[in-house]
Nucleic acid binder design. Structure first.
Lengths: 253, 253
DNA sequence: TTTAGAGGCGAACACCGTTCGTGTCAAGTA
DNA sequence: TACTTGACACGAACGGTGTTCGCCTCTAAA
């Protein structure tokens, strides 16, 4: 049974030789009594960053901590909860300025860019986030910032709630899409995003060029424009679109 | 081995008795020579609609077609391709009107509502869609509609490309989120979305009420407004936000 | 010193996507 | 008519997955 073999791997650390069977191996001095929720979250985030979402399994996390998968369940209810904890841990990296309602648009833009940066740097964490309702401490912290900014800028509370919701959806949705692309990149063995984008859009362009111009005249005619902008430009465009829409709805408009 | 038992299930149909072992079972008259890609896609969509995304496995699809999982791979490269095929199949249900650039905003709104309706009625298909680049025939059909509408209304091709991209992200992202909520609803054994929404927002409200008002003053003060609107209202608000942003950018503005 | 309980964890359960190799059959060719 | 070829069906297996059970050990309170 290969699972037995895997289980036995536990008795060795990363780079040493198996313990000789006659050494009773009376358990190492006083080691393992660690294994907290924080450690598990940190290990999970490490795997997510280094190997991507698909590599993040409970077994893999346990392996990283030199233990078996069952041990994790004393500190974490299940994988979903672990993902939520990792997500909130990442949100903790978001830096918030002092609120200044007079400059709400500028601050909101900066906030979105900051979220984009953080979610982007921990590539795959967004895949855990779309469903999770703002419930972790850092989710609340960022929520209070955005909501407060809108309210203090004079927006109606009901509308501000909708804006908070739609803005989050945009940020997470975009990050999620980005993470799927990163997974494809990884699967293709590439590592340079620029190279990936060019090869990828090249393929799309080639495919589009083979389309019948009679049924798809507009797509056919503007292939170059269709694949011109990368993820960063697309994100920025959507952001400005939202911000401008918001500006129309603010009291001073 | 339970897998053997499962495999043998194939030799019976849904509601009859096992074949006696002495009957050589010379294979049924001329049955099975079916099993096309269309059948597989249709079966998959049926499972998706009836039991949700998490129930959709290659084994489950095979079972539905009275065969083994290996048989599917002659018609479908892998699960990912199957999901893309199902997605495009669903997009086929989207009805498009004659394009009328003079009424672009109205038509774009109607289009978005139609997509929202179709993706919502096949709840979980959006979970397959976020990554898939517009490559299926129906993806192209809808893309040509939106892109043509924007171009004919006078928008710059480069910008129209960005709009097409962001609009798709919004529609799919919202549907994806909705599907995750539907999964939660299913997991909680509920079936009425209204009931689910009320119980869910009630929980959130209760949780928010326990928050310290000193650190989260704005969230704390406006709990009722935060949970007031359901998914439909949120979708509509975001849509109008986008459309208004677009209007500002159109030539006639 | 004894006891209660929390945590570690090997083994197993019931799944999953995918591949391999064999078997069957229909159509084309000699 | 007989033989060959190739497409498809599919049982079995491989190597994973999340999670649970039950036992064991060890710490801390009594």
């Amino acid at each position: 049974m290969s699972s037995t073999v895997f289980g036995m791997d536990r008795t060795r650390t990363t780079d040493d030789v198996p313990v000789p069977p006659w050494r009773k191996s009376r358990r190492q001095p006083q080691p393992k009594r660690q294994l907290s929720q924080d450690l598990i979250v940190e290990a999970g985030l490490g795997i997510l960053d280094a190997e991507g979402f698909d590599a993040l399994s409970m077994r893999r996390v346990a392996q990283e901590l030199d233990t078996g998968p069952a041990s994790l369940y004393a500190h974490v209810a299940n994988k979903e909860e672990l993902l939520e904890l990792i997500y909130d841990r990442v949100l903790g990296e978001i830096r918030l300025p002092e609120r200044d309602p007079a400059r709400w648009k500028e601050q909101l833009r900066a906030y979105c860019l900051e979220v984009h940066r953080v979610l982007g740097s921990h590539s795959d964490v967004a895949r855990a986030a779309l469903a999770s309702i703002p419930t972790g401490p850092n989710s609340l912290r960022t929520g209070e910032f955005v909501y407060g900014l809108l309210i203090e800028a004079g927006m109606d509370p009901r509308e501000a709630s909708l804006v908070l919701d739609r803005l989050s959806l945009y940020l997470i949705g975009d990050a999620y899409e980005g993470s799927l692309h990163r997974a494809r990149m990884r699967a293709a063995g590439m590592s340079d995003p620029q190279e990936y984008f060019e090869r990828f859009s090249g393929q799309i362009a080639t495919y589009y060029r083979a389309l019948p111009a009679s049924t798809f005249p507009h797509l056919r005619r503007h292939i170059d424009e269709l694949v011109a902008d990368d993820g960063e430009n697309r994100f920025m465009y959507g952001l400005e679109l939202l911000l401008d829409g918001l500006e129309q709805r603010m009291p001073g408009a």
